[in-house]
Design a protein around this nucleic acid. Structure first.
Lengths: 396, 396
DNA sequence: ATGTATTTGTTGGTTGACACAACGTATCAC
DNA sequence: GTGATACGTTGTGTCAACCAACAAATACAT
């Protein structure tokens, strides 16, 4: 590691702190990084000069002494976040600090092909960029509902979209002329919750998300999101819990995903195609109702029991300090009573269970685009020097 | 990160390479670290001056050009590795590079208390150090058969030894006057296999070890051993696989550990208290025998099926590129036929299963002391500058 | 055997990043 | 207002790594 790498590392550390906190004072930076005031001033000056951060005088006064200026993310340096789904392509521009500065949901009347997705995405990103004067898009992150190979952004299998072995990041990078990364949507939901949601401050975090197409998740180890060998880590839906259980889409029996399906909850409350908020509301109401016939309450209790078995194994396995539940698993959590909540990790080894807190996801519908933006920011934050001179999609 | 930290980091990187490879040429170091020849020369000179490495002229000639001297670990700088067990305390001195330079197994006629363990260990370390002229012991690592809190080396629960909430690292550090770390034995077996055994080169590795007291394990993420929030990660024996299964010692039903116990294999081959090698030999023979009555073969097949369920879930969860099996699980692997071996991950998601290789552990009976030594080396390698001036237990 | 190409170690000077100390400035408490 | 506190700024110092030139040691070709 040479001196240049040292500079890069420190710039990266400053940028990361500004990103995670959405703005910090220079005094905070000196304390957090242990560097000299003059060095921090130098680092911030470099970043400000290139337009990555702005220095403002709006920091809250914290006590006696000369006030320290706030180093705030610039809203002219953004990444694009993309989330293709069944009937919509969700595109957003996200600034340092995780703020969504522009967003457009492109409605579709059919399930998009990869080629269509690439074209519509590129077009939408260009349009959004053109609408905001002075903005520069520097990278793209894509959240795909399926298995994505991290190193080249190849979609291995997205059953929902009918995609199989389709290159995605490459063509989109060609179309937009900037780096593109892609990853699994649940992974990126985990990223988002970790950075800005219910996982802030967690060291080792387990994230489980329940959606219409199954249960996915992510794992954070020592504050770093874990990808696994190829980027498929976190598929918690396919823990085998019961050899006598129902057949799962994956071909095995008794997967968590088959034992606690979202569909069953939807059916129990008698709704059609509710979003997560509507499902949660209906479930909480149904469980709370005294005159409930019991279908919802029974199904909730049943799914909670299986969730407990899965969590017992997973908590023993990775010893997390936080577990975050999203999608319909968050709905289960919200309508569980205290005894049910306690039972979720009651059977885990006491030493591991003692240090873990369970929380519902906090970011709601913005989770995936924020997570995708995190993915795009990764490389830029890790190597700000290269990014300073890299090509950008400037305003038209 | 200041310039001093840069120096520390580079010294650490050199030391780590020398450690992992048991000696490398200076030319290798320049290539691996991307530093200038003169810088490498300087770094090596510092380490050699303080006695951590030796420069020798015995490097294999690799081609034209001036030969590069080999930077080899010195065998005078060692750490102590300790493994208390039911009837023995295993103590070894291990040099950089993982070479055991001295070892003594202190036999006991009863299960030792923590106080006895501390005293016997301290005494044995001092004796071993006194036997070898010029040797300096700089740190201690302890492999404990139980749950150990990493940050302070407190034994939470070691049922085998009857220890519960016993401080261990602190008293031993006081007795020997040097830093002491302690961790779970399966964790450290994982460390050893990762660094010097079947896990060399793996990025994400899953390690499962089967022993008389249950099934433990460890997880390596991006080349770094994962501890979890408090150091209890890797307890793979308590994945819940069958709600109708037998009761486990942990209180839950259908844990892997209860479904694939070592005892059942021992009983099937009719041995009494065999070590792992004897068990493996007997199992392989029993399964291979044509006139086998089937007890061993049936039990092996049954355990392999449960192991497959556990591996399916774990492989889907963490997407490893390598799975290493130790203890009686290695014996299972060795006597499995090709179809059985393939079935171990046949049910995992194809994308994840495609990249994983399964291997039996390679290090045998030295695994735990080597792993414990790795633990002790950690801090020294991470911060060689401090270690240069730290107190040492020199020869008497 | 001799010369040439190749690779590496060594040396002295240069560069770059951060630390340090002194000073200027802004706020708070009294 | 005055002192205390905290912080930014500036010029100088220090340390680690780089670089270029040279020397040394080997392989290979003739």
């Amino acid at each position: 590691m040479d001196a240049g790498a040292l500079r890069r590392r420190n710039l990266s550390a400053v940028l990361e702190l500004v990103h995670r906190h959405g703005g910090v004072t220079r005094a905070d930076l000196t304390r957090a990084l242990g560097l000299n005031r003059s060095t921090i001033g130098d680092l911030v000056a470099v970043l400000a000069e290139h337009g990555w951060v702005d220095e403002r005088d709006d920091a809250p006064r914290s006590g006696v002494g000369r006030p320290s200026p706030r180093v705030a993310p610039s809203d002219t340096r953004v990444v694009a976040a993309v989330n293709p789904e069944l009937d919509v392509i969700d595109v957003a521009l996200v600034s340092l600090g995780g703020q969504i500065v522009a967003r457009r949901r492109v409605a579709l009347d059919h399930v998009p092909s990869v080629a269509e997705t690439v074209e519509l995405t590129a077009q939408t990103v260009r349009e959004l960029a053109a609408e905001t004067p002075g903005i520069e898009v520097r990278a793209v992150g894509v959240a795909v509902p399926g298995l994505v190979r991290r190193r080249d952004g190849q979609v291995r299998l997205a059953p929902h979209l009918g995609w199989r072995e389709e290159p995605l990041a490459g063509p989109l990078a060609d179309a937009l002329g900037m780096p593109v990364s892609a990853a699994n949507d649940a992974h990126l939901g985990c990223r988002a919750e970790q950075t800005f949601g219910a996982g802030v401050g967690a060291g080792t975090m387990l994230y489980l998300n329940g959606g219409p197409s199954g249960i996915g998740g992510g794992l954070v180890v020592d504050g770093r999101p874990m990808d696994g060998a190829a980027g498929y880590a976190g598929e918690l839906g396919h823990l085998g819990l019961d050899p006598a259980g129902p057949l799962c889409a994956c071909g095995a029996r008794g997967c968590l995903e088959a034992l606690a399906p979202r569909d069953a909850l939807v059916a129990a409350v008698g709704l059609e195609h509710p979003d997560d908020d509507a499902l949660e509301e209906a479930l909480v109401a149904a469980v709370a109702a005294e005159d409930d016939d019991g279908a919802a309450r029974t199904e909730v209790a049943r799914q909670l029991r299986w969730l407990a078995v899965a969590l017992r194994g997973a908590v023993n396995f990775v010893n997390p300090d936080r577990v975050v539940l999203g999608g319909h698993l968050a709905a289960l959590w919200r309508c569980a009573d205290d005894a049910q909540r306690a039972s979720l990790i009651a059977d885990a080894l006491p030493a591991s269970a003692a240090e873990v807190t369970i929380e519902p996801a906090a970011l709601g519908a913005q989770r995936l685009v924020i997570g995708a933006a995190e993915l795009a920011w990764d490389a830029l934050i890790a190597d700000p020097i290269d990014a300073l001179t890299s090509p950008a999609l400037a305003e038209a």
